[in-house]
Every structure is written in C-alpha cells, then in structure tokens.
Write a protein that binds this DNA or RNA. Structure first.
Length: 509
RNA sequence: GACCCCGUAGCUCAGUGGUAGAGCAUCUGACUUUUAAUCAGAGGGCCGCAGGUUCGAUCCCUGCCGGGGUCACCA
C-alpha cells in the first residue's frame, strides 16, 4: 500500500506508527481500564492526604507536551476536561522511549499517583504509559494560559467557521466552549422531556416520510418510494399526526423531531431542524401560555442555573413571569400609531409602503400584516413576549377566537427578537377546517406554493371528533441558541448543512 | 437568487506587480517539577481553481469553486 501524504507532518506520523509497531507497541489496543476522569481527580485531590489517589488510571488525548530532556509533562483531555501528567525517563525507560514517538492528538492511558507540582498543578505521576490510539493527522494547536485572575486566555484559537462546521470533530476537540454548547443543548432536551413526562404526557413518534405534508406553510423535500412507486415528502411538521393521536384518545402527546423545509439557509434557518410539538386535550391557549412560561423557566433554570437566557452579544434575558402578552393587531397599531384592523388590503399595502416595509403588490392581506409585524415589531421583542390573536387567514389550523371570528386563538412567543414558539387553541370543527383548507387551495392555485395541502384523512379524524385541545410548537434549535448565547443556528447543530466540498461531490450514476 | 467581504504553511495571521514571511505546531540538539516551558538550529507553500492583462501575477481584471455577512425568500 502506498499512501501519498498531504504534508510532512502526516508522513512523519505514519513513519512513527511504523516505528512503534517495529518496537512491539500495539498502536490501536482494544481497551484501557480507567479508574478516574480528569475532573474526578481534580475535585477529590487533597494536599493533606493524597493517598486515596495513590493509584489512578486516566485516559485521554494528548493536547500539549513539554519535553525537558529526561522528564516530560503533558496534558491529556477527556470528556470532563484536562489533567497534567508527568513521566520520568529513569522510572519508565522503555515507555519514555515510546513517548518520543507520540504527538499532540494521540490518545493515551496513564496509570500512576496524583501529586501537586511546585507550580501548584495537580498532576498524575506516571507509573505506566500506554498508547491507546495513534493520531495520524495534526490537530489545530490551541494554546491556553491563565492571567493573574485565573481567566483562560486562548491563543491561536481554531476559528475558521467552514473548517469548524465541516470537521466538527476537530472543533469539539480543541474548542471546549463548543463541547459545552452541545452538552447544554442535550441537557435542555432532557429537561423538557422530564417536564412533560412528570405531567403524564406521552412521547410518541410519527412519520417522517409522509404522503401528504401538512401542519405548516413551507416547501417540502420530495423523495420517492420505490416499493410503492409513489412520491413521499419529508415532514415539515408533526401537527396533523399528533392531532390524530388526540382523536385516538391520548390526552397529552409530544414529539421532539427533525423537520425538513426546502427553503433558505441563514443564521436562523437550517434545512433540517429540531422541533418540539405538544398537544394537550381539554386545554386552550391561555392555559398553554402559562404552561409555556413554566416550561421555559424550569428548563432554563436547570440548564443555566438561573432563569436567564443569553444573547450572542453576552447580555442576559431574564425570564420573569408572567411574560408580556400583547395582541398582534395592538402591537402593530402601537408601532404605527394607527389602528389597522378595519383597513382594506389596499390600505394595508399603502401603509407598508409608507413604513418602508418591502412587500409585493400582490401580497395577501395576511401577508401584509405579517410583514408589518416582522419588520416593525418583531426586532423590538427582546424580553419574552406572547403575541396573540392573529387574523384567521394567517392560521389555517387554529380555532377561531371566542370573542372575534375574524381572529384565532393563537400565540407566538418571541424572545431576543426570535420566534421561539407557536401555539393555538386547536381547530377541531371539521367544517371550519375544511373551509380553511379550501382557502389554502385557492392560495395554492393562485401561485402560493407554500399554502397547505388538503388532507382528507385528517378531516375524517376531525369528523370522528377531537376534544378541545391546546397545541404548542417550539423551535428547539433557536431555544438552544438562547440557552448557549449562540449567534447562529449552525453553532447549536452538530453537523449543519454545508455545500459538499469539491472532492466530495456525488458522482452522477 | 442579488449584493458586499474573505480564501497565503497543519493552525492563527502578515505581506508585495519581480514566483513569499511571523508565531504556534513539526524536525535536530540541550534541559529530571514544566505549564503560551525555555534556549540554539532546520524543514515545510500549485498564495482556492481556470483564464486574461503584463517582459513578469500570490498581488490587477473576468469567470468558477468554497465560506461568511446583508437583503430577498422563509419559521
């Protein structure tokens, strides 16, 4: 086998690998009996009694080496953090020789006793050094130092966004804040599950591949099922299936799932993203606003230690109950200084033009209201705010407002200028639902390719009868952004969608 | 999709119309409590790709590829 090496460092490492094998070192052994993680040692070491840590075994990736002739210090990194190790040539002559052939990036196991160095760092003094995996590619080298206040100063951080997203494994190895971000994301989802499970609501799984896509207005990804020779769509939402389960008699169901929307990619959008949807029978959107507040305060407190979310600029967003609640038409009217509910489509269009809101002349009334809101109001909604009671044309799956049939019982939750949640008192009147679908069909015929598709089976389910139900959707990625202070959705998705690199282009069959 | 910015060593970045430089990393040597270890030396580059202008292009121009940002589209 001949390998063309990309650079001298990789060639060098392959040579070292051969030399290790020639010396009888197994470069890829099967296991290592670890007794402690780095953190367990750092947290339990006591200067007045080091004996409990007189024989520990740690394992991890070498992140720094300081060779000083016949003694060497190195740091290894495990999932918990880093710990320094110390090895002396006269104590372990053959393993010290092997260490010559090791590099930053190699994974090793160290068995020994724990002590504190003159410089004050808790360190594992090696009685055994074992190679666990030889690394054949150089890692980005990031150096850290501590200033007099103990703050970590990072030098030459691995920052190239393209490389960080494409080679997330490198990003995770060298950027500890990235590891923390994804740990927090995972804890957030765990906390959400716990919150729902404690209330007896059932986690379910519904189809990703759907013959009819629904539950949201968006362009879908289309695929094809060979077995039945039919098109299928990747789901854009779970809504219609979860409601069928409420019809079926479950009284609280939720799903945390990937949705797929064939639309733009930017700081707030990834073609596949994670959504939470939950439906609870016999409840309405008022109850749901209270529940949403409690959910967010509980989850944020558990993940961040306090009920405060974090913006990318470092400022906090305290979650103080109750969240502000404002009706959509009031919010827009206040921003404009003029009531808008009785305006015609043409008057709304003129209003948009006057306020520099960019809209197509053919835009529907719902679209114009949406544009006015998202341009004039949404950016101002930093503190958590429920925006409620949307016009019925904007919300084909929501129940009409009990006080005004032109509106629906709906809320969207905005935090940090982002839409985080969307919820309704769910429409369960099958005749009204059919009319709404028919209106969507007219929009589709008029060229709106994001309008909803009529789903006869869903209507049949509503005819069987769905109890009054409250339904909520939360954008998990966006919530994770606020949980971690991320500026881009790509920073909270492990493998965000990227255009393939040239060498990785799929070959046409 | 439109516009703006970016692409130089493994990483982070300088730089110039006369085919390249720093720090870290790598290699050689010294060093048995170092810690951005230190000290002395060395190697490493299709300057994103392809054209064009020019005696000569990493630099100027055009196109393409990739990334970032803004807008549009959109949860």
């Amino acid at each position: 086998m001949s390998i063309e090496f990309e650079n001298d460092q990789i060639r060098r490492r392959y040579e070292e690998l051969d030399e290790l094998i020639a010396r009888g070192v197994e470069p890829y052994p099967h296991s290592f009996d670890r007794t402690h993680t780095s953190r367990q040692i750092l947290e339990t070491f006591r200067d007045d009694d080091p004996s409990p840590l007189a024989d520990v075994a740690v394992a991890g990736r070498i992140m720094a080496i300081r060779r000083m002739g016949k003694a060497t210090f190195f740091h290894i990194q495990d999932a918990d953090g880093k710990i320094q190790c110390y090895i002396k040539a006269d104590e372990l002559p053959s393993q010290y020789e092997m260490l010559r052939l090791l590099d930053i990036g190699d994974i090793v196991g160290v068995r020994g006793f724990v002590f504190r160095t003159r410089a004050g760092e808790i360190t594992v003094h090696a009685r055994l050094l074992a190679l666990l995996c030889k690394s054949l590619r150089p890692l980005p080298v990031v150096k850290e130092e501590r200033d007099e206040h103990g703050n970590v100063i990072v030098h030459d951080a691995f920052t190239d966004k393209e490389q960080r997203y494409r080679r997330r494994y490198l990003d995770l190895i060298v950027n500890s804040h990235v590891r923390q971000t994804f740990i927090q994301r995972s804890r957030m989802i765990t906390a959400i599950r716990r919150f729902f499970d404690e209330r007896g609501w059932l986690e379910v799984e519904t189809p990703v591949l759907q013959p009819i896509y629904g539950g949201a207005t968006a362009r879908p990804f289309v695929t094809h099922l060979n077995a039945l020779d039919m098109p299928l769509y990747l789901r854009i939402a779970d809504e219609l299936y979860l409601k069928r389960l409420i019809v079926g008699g479950f009284e609280g169901v939720y799903e945390i799932s990937k949705n797929f929307r064939n639309e733009g990619i930017d700081r707030m959008h990834n073609p596949e993203f994670t959504a939470l949807e939950i439906y609870v029978a016999y409840r309405d959107y008022h109850w749901l606003m209270d529940m949403t507040e409690e959910l967010l305060v509980t989850v944020t407190s558990q993940v961040r230690g306090e009920p405060t979310l974090l913006r990318a600029d470092g400022t906090g967003i305290p979650l103080e109950r109750p969240f502000r609640r404002v009706r959509l038409l009031d919010a827009i009217s206040d921003a404009i200084g003029q009531r808008i509910e009785s305006l015609s489509r043409e008057e709304l269009y003129t209003l948009c033009r006057r306020h520099d809101v960019d809209v197509a002349p053919s835009a529907s009334k719902a679209k114009l209201i949406d544009e006015l809101f998202s341009t004039l109001v949404q950016p101002t909604l930093v503190a958590p705010t429920f925006v409620t009671d949307h016009p019925v044309e904007m919300s084909p799956l929501a129940k009409r407002h009990r006080d005004d049939p032109m509106l629906v019982e709906r809320f969207e939750l905005y935090i940090g200028g982002m839409e985080i949640a969307n919820a309704f008192s769910e429409l369960n009147d099958p005749r009204d639902q059919r009319q709404r679908f028919e209106e969507q069909a007219r929009l589709r015929a008029g060229g709106d390719d994001e309008a909803m598709v009529l789903d006869e089976d869903f209507l049949m389910a509503l005819e069987v009868g769905m109890p009054p139900t409250a339904g909520l959707g939360i954008g998990i990625d966006r919530l994770a952004m606020l949980m971690t202070g991320a500026a881009s959705i790509r920073d909270v998705i492990l493998f965000p969608l990227m255009r393939p690199e040239h060498s990785q282009r799929p070959i046409e069959a």
